[in-house]
Design a protein around this nucleic acid. Structure first.
Length: 487
RNA sequence: GGCCCCAUAGUCUAGAGGCCUAGGACGCCGGACCCUCAUUCCGGAAACAGCGGUUCGAAUCCGCUUGGGGCUACCA
């Protein structure tokens, strides 16, 4: 079995494309076949610089690996459609000679007019067929006028698409028109190039998004005209934006890269994508791509288009953030920490920071932000927190008492429980509840009122820094420097 | 407009005639725990689009309607 993913390098890889690629890949691998990456770059106008390599990078990060592709030449290459032009032209010529295709000299203006006229009459906008029956002797052929090549589509009968997911789908040939297979610039159109390349690359199962189901009868006609054996087809449902329309830039983040930039782990993203239109036989939701290979079958692919849900994606990411080994998370979060301009060389390790903060982060951005206080003293204190926890006049005294007790405590006792004991002792001494110590302390140390448990936080921050911050805040409070501090 | 595909809660899904008073997940609401937030745990609201058939019996089969999506380019 051989499948393929054939994106056009006209932008970034959006999650719909990634999901289609993933399913094609899993389908091939489940049957121990090959997965091919072919870049469909025939439309030079839509070509976007660098998008081919961006596409490949995104695919790789998701763990979707091709056996043959533009960067991994195999025996059936080249794998960039533009480099197969000679082949396309050769087959177009063959169809011309065989009379299954013809040159069409109609101008775009003429076609547009004819189309609009038919639309006005509420007729399907079919090519009118002006050039279909031109004689070989027609002087226009030697006139040097630009032309396209059209396939001569049967005027009656039906073309049946035998789809692995959709079943038998029947199309009336009379509703198809003589579509263009070679443009005026002598490059092939999608429906022509795709056939020649799929056949040439010996793709046994054409798995692609459902938007191509309507194109399939046209392609089958090309297969037949060329005398090629038909592959199997499987049309995978689309991924829709939350408003149920086709994915586009206006829907915010839709590209794999953007999600990665938002701090979604590729493992979480691909796991989420896997659940969009497919479910495991045993209903489990957490899987790696490798886990899914033995489980993946087309029978379990949904027929309905799926709407992606950012909330569930983030939830899944949070699960990975909690479950993956700390070292992996550290590696993943490091660029995000750097982006925040944090220098973590001194003080707590990133490992300790990740272990401390990962439980309540949804994205790597959250995580980096939540660790920031470990290496940077708070520049500002949450106003509501200040009002609530810094207002009592005893606060400076309490913080200083705490600082002193912590300073005096045995470094060997610098553990969660050891620190808790110090807090309890100070609270008892001051005749207050432990919470009355904890809240101002967290605010003094981190600048905010939410975050990790205080004792583990203090433990990671370390004795010296903790004591220094407490004293600094106590001093500032006493001098009124923090009163009404807004930002 | 024409052609094609699709239809279980807000979202992702389980379900292939009786196991369904429709199961799970996210989200939402409430509660427990707690030093806050988050996590975790417990509980709750929430769906078979509608109408006709077929059948002893229909979420499951058929038809129609409605709704959504796709295609209808010298884009892919």
């Amino acid at each position: 079995m051989r499948t393929r993913y054939a994106p056009s390098p006209s932008g970034t890889l959006h999650i719909g494309g990634a999901r289609t690629a993933l399913f094609s890949y899993l389908f091939a691998k489940h049957h121990e076949g090959q997965f091919v990456l072919r870049v469909e770059d025939t439309d030079r106008a839509r070509l976007v610089e660098g998008s081919e390599s961006a596409l490949m990078r995104s695919l790789r990060l998701l763990g979707i690996h091709w056996d043959e592709g533009p960067d991994l030449e195999g025996p059936l290459g080249p794998y960039r459609q533009s480099e197969r032009l000679a082949l396309h032209q050769q087959y177009a010529e063959q169809l011309l000679k065989g009379g299954q295709a013809y040159r069409c000299y109609c101008t775009p203006e003429e076609l547009k007019q004819a189309r609009e006229a038919r639309m006005a009459q509420k007729l399907p906008p079919r090519y009118m067929g002006t050039c279909r029956n031109r004689l070989a002797e027609d002087p226009i052929h030697t006139s040097g006028q630009p032309y396209v090549i059209r396939l001569k589509v049967p005027l009656d009968g039906v073309t049946v698409v035998d789809d692995l997911i959709r079943g038998h789908v029947t199309f009336e040939n009379s509703l198809l028109d003589d579509f263009v297979i070679m443009k005026a610039d002598h490059t092939p159109t999608y429906n022509f190039a795709a056939v020649i390349d799929d056949w040439g690359m010996q793709i046994s199962h054409v798995t692609r998004a459902e938007e191509h189901l309507s194109n399939t009868p046209k392609q089958i006609l090309v297969y037949q005209a060329l005398g090629f054996d038909l592959p199997q087809f499987a049309h995978i449902p689309m991924v829709l934006a939350p408003d149920r329309s086709k994915l586009s830039k206006r829907h915010g983040a839709t590209a794999v890269e953007e999600y990665l930039d938002q701090g979604i782990l590729p493992q979480a993203l691909v796991n989420y994508l896997l659940l969009l239109g497919w479910s495991a036989p045993d209903g489990r939701e957490f899987m790696t791509v490798a886990d899914a290979v033995p489980l993946f079958t087309l029978e379990r692919v949904q027929h309905t288009a799926a709407v992606y849900d950012q909330k569930k994606l983030e939830w899944m990411n949070a699960q990975y953030l909690k479950a993956l080994p700390v070292t992996e998370i550290v590696a993943a979060v490091t660029p995000f920490v750097e982006k925040l301009g944090i220098s973590w060389g001194q003080g707590p390790t990133l490992d300790a920071g990740v272990a401390l903060a990962r439980e309540r982060a949804h994205t790597l951005v959250d995580l980096a932000q939540a660790m920031k206080f470990l290496w940077e003293r708070p520049q500002a204190f949450d106003p509501k927190g200040v009002q609530k926890h810094f207002t009592p006049l005893e606060v400076p005294i309490r913080l200083e008492a705490l600082a002193e007790a912590l300073e005096r405590s045995d470094t060997a006792a610098w553990t969660h429980d050891g620190i808790m004991e110090v807090f309890d002792a100070v609270a008892k001494n001051l005749d207050i509840k432990r919470a009355e110590l904890i809240h101002p302390c967290r605010l003094a140390l981190t600048g905010v009122t939410v975050g990790p448990g205080l004792f583990e936080l203090v433990q990671v921050l370390g004795p010296q820094e903790t004591v220094a911050r407490l004293r600094q805040v106590a001093t500032n409070l006493r001098e009124g420097a923090l009163k009404g501090s807004q930002s």
